[in-house]
Write a protein that binds this DNA or RNA. Structure first.
Length: 595
RNA sequence: GAUUCCAUAGCUCAGCUGGAUAGAGCACAAGUUUUCUAAACUUGCGGUCAUUGGUUCGAAUCCAAUUGGGAUCACCA
């Protein structure tokens, strides 16, 4: 049984017995490392019922717990803090109970809740950049965490494959591309299409400048620039199913998909279901009609349709233009309803940057007002943007950090560092390249996931991402040390023991600390799942690896003289290795066997 | 103007649901390897938790105001 739960119940008994009072909720904290003990009960809240001094109250409860709870080995009182020492026997029995168990139970109950999580959702007019990388890693990791916490997860991607931005790339390619293809120029398809998106912008800006110098306002110039007019015409043709435009669109989008696939593969993310906006952008209009019929939506005199959310502290939101065409919100309404009809889900998570907080507030509230019960399960996983030292990344100004380039740089750095340290000696070319990928991409993923998703994060291209300290390579390194120990142990004659493990009677403080960290895994996983925060897992696994690193440094394992102790320490190390690997998997990070 | 998010060491970040002397990593300084992989370990340096006020036995944490910064408030996506 969970030791905190048990102590909580015993404490309730103590309060009833000592002070004839019942308290609903008892919580314990980790004991401050400066004091002896494992769990601490703060008794200030109980002074009202005990009517005694803090020290006295704490001592009385401590004595009760000591007398009535076999797991409690002792206690000490400092001011209002009751520091409780849990017996080594309890921690050892806990370690025994998880022996050989996987840290994550993959088996799902038949009635496991279904969670749909949408992430990535790129535009198909340019390659992925660092902002997408955060989105992808976050979405993938949250999906893994939710799975591990016992949910059935459906990963989806809503690809924005139509719209004016795509037409801009198409038009520029048509005008200045000379028929070049990814094959002919050896460029990844998404990068090639992105090149023409930038090309469009370059010429477009010149046209605007020319118009402004002719005396037009900036606003008019942007609308009247010939290139923009042609791009818009292209969009109309696309919507009218014009054959030529459609086939150009299809060809260029396919280039992009091939490029994205390569990036996704390298990042290690995947999807169960991919939606395309070209197929969903017309959805939602019927919902508008229903909403109008119910009187929830209103029509303006110019025929446009809106919902009035001013009573909820938001604004009036237009849902259909005066000409009857949809806006972004319309198709988001439609897509949500379509998904709810296709799949039963308890939760649907949208992984989208926090610049769209307002959009999702409106979306969820509108669905609620339209009477969809399932809208209560919608959640916007709003994450902070990745910023550069000079501020926000801007694709058109070329200040973006390209995803493919960054990943390659990380792998190259990993390779250079590995060679420098002589870590890759004796590995085949294939194995060493796999190792560099594992380390380089691990460093990148950990760097992005260790930060609280809600907070914006800074990336400074001038400072390379670290491989030392609080990083994935450090965690991987400690996993590797454990595997090296286990390999060596297997070669030591006579060490292999088929007899049951003999656990020591007393634990070293580092050993106890490590077992307690293992014990904490489940509650951290639970919290990470309910907070949608891979950062909690990242911090956890770093702390575990760091504590192991200290243990490894201070305590002999294979060099220990007593065979029983060697086997015990190996067993503990192996269990820690399993926990590290499982935690890293939740972050989408692999661990190597040697490095 | 309205709404909203943020502010912790030189830098990047933990510290959520109020608890003991605010923690890591990087950087900087010094040390540790005939001993299981030194991408390591140890020690030192470094803080008015933006400011002010409030609630409380107790506030980095909750509330309010102020200052500074970001985002949003389109018949854009």
């Amino acid at each position: 049984m969970d030791i905190e739960k048990k102590l909580g119940e015993k404490t309730k008994e103590a309060l009833l017995f000592l002070y004839n009072a019942s308290i609903e909720k008892i919580t314990f904290e980790k004991t401050n490392p400066d004091f002896e003990g494992d769990l601490t009960l703060v008794v200030f809240n109980f002074l009202k019922i005990s009517k005694k001094k803090p020290e006295e109250t704490a001592a009385e409860i401590g004595n009760f717990l000591l007398a009535n709870t076999p797991e409690v080995a002792g206690f000490n009182v400092i001011k209002g803090f009751l520091n409780i020492v849990i017996s080594d026997a309890y921690w050892l029995s806990y370690l025994k109970s998880i022996s050989g168990q996987p840290f994550i139970n993959a088996e799902l109950r038949a009635d496991a809740p279904t969670v749909m999580i949408e992430y990535s959702s790129p535009n198909t007019n340019k390659p992925l950049h660092l902002g997408h990388v955060r989105n992808n890693l976050l979405g993938y990791s949250v999906a893994e965490i939710l799975k591990a916490a016992g949910n059935k997860v459906i990963k989806t991607n809503l690809v924005n494959d139509r719209g004016i931005h795509i037409c801009k790339s198409m038009l520029a390619w048509q005008k200045w591309g000379n028929g070049e293809t990814p094959e002919s120029c050896g460029m990844k398809g998404d990068h090639l299409v992105g090149k023409y998106y930038v090309e469009f912008d370059k010429h477009y800006k010149k046209e605007i400048e020319a118009l402004i110098s002719q005396g037009k306002s900036k606003e008019d110039a942007e609308k009247q620039a010939p290139l923009m007019l042609v791009a818009q015409e292209m969009l109309f043709k696309w919507e009218a199913n014009d054959e030529k435009v459609r086939s150009l669109w299809l060809m260029m989008n396919n280039w992009v998909y091939a490029g994205f696939e390569a990036t996704y593969n390298m990042l290690g993310v995947d999807f169960d279901k991919i939606y395309f906006e070209s197929k969903t952008y017309l959805l939602g209009k019927n919902i508008i009609d229903e909403g109008l019929a119910k009187g929830i939506l209103k029509r303006r005199s110019d025929n446009s349709v809106y919902i009035d959310l001013t009573a909820d502290g938001l604004d009036e939101k237009t849902l259909l233009r005066a000409d009857g065409t949809s806006v972004y919100m319309t198709q988001d309404l439609g897509t949500a309803v379509q998904r709810a009809e296709e799949e039963h889900f308890e939760k649907m998570i949208y992984t989208v940057a926090n610049e769209q907080d307002y959009h999702f507030k409106v979306l969820f509230l509108t669905l609620k007002k339209l009477g969809y019960d399932w809208s209560a399960g919608l959640y916007h996983l709003s994450y902070g943007m990745v910023e550069l030292p000079e501020g926000k990344m801007k694709s058109r100004e070329g200040t973006v950090v390209d995803a493919d380039e960054l990943m390659q740089e990380m792998i190259d750095t990993a390779a250079a560092t590995s060679k420098e340290l002589g870590k890759a000696e004796g590995l085949s070319k294939e194995d060493s390249e796999k190792l560099y990928r594992t380390i380089g991409l691990g460093a990148l993923k950990y760097f992005m996931l260790k930060v609280d998703p809600k907070k914006k994060m800074l990336f400074n291209p001038a400072e390379s991402i670290d491989f030392n300290g609080n990083t994935a390579p450090f965690i991987q390194f400690n996993y590797v040390r454990i595997q090296a120990l286990l390999r060596k142990a297997a070669e030591i004659p006579g060490l292999e023991s088929t007899a049951p493990l003999v656990f020591p009677v007393n634990l070293m403080s580092k050993e106890k600390g490590l077992i307690i960290r293992l014990y904490n895994f489940n509650s951290i996983l639970k919290e990470a799942a309910s907070e949608y925060s891979p950062a909690l897992i990242a911090n956890y696994v770093y702390d575990l690896a760091k504590e192991f690193s200290q243990y490894y440094h201070d305590v002999p394992i294979l060099k220990e003289e007593q065979k029983d102790l060697i086997l015990f320490r190996l067993h503990l190390s192996k269990t820690i290795g399993t926990a590290i690997k499982a935690s890293m998997k939740l972050l989408g990070i692999e661990v190597p066997e040697r490095m």
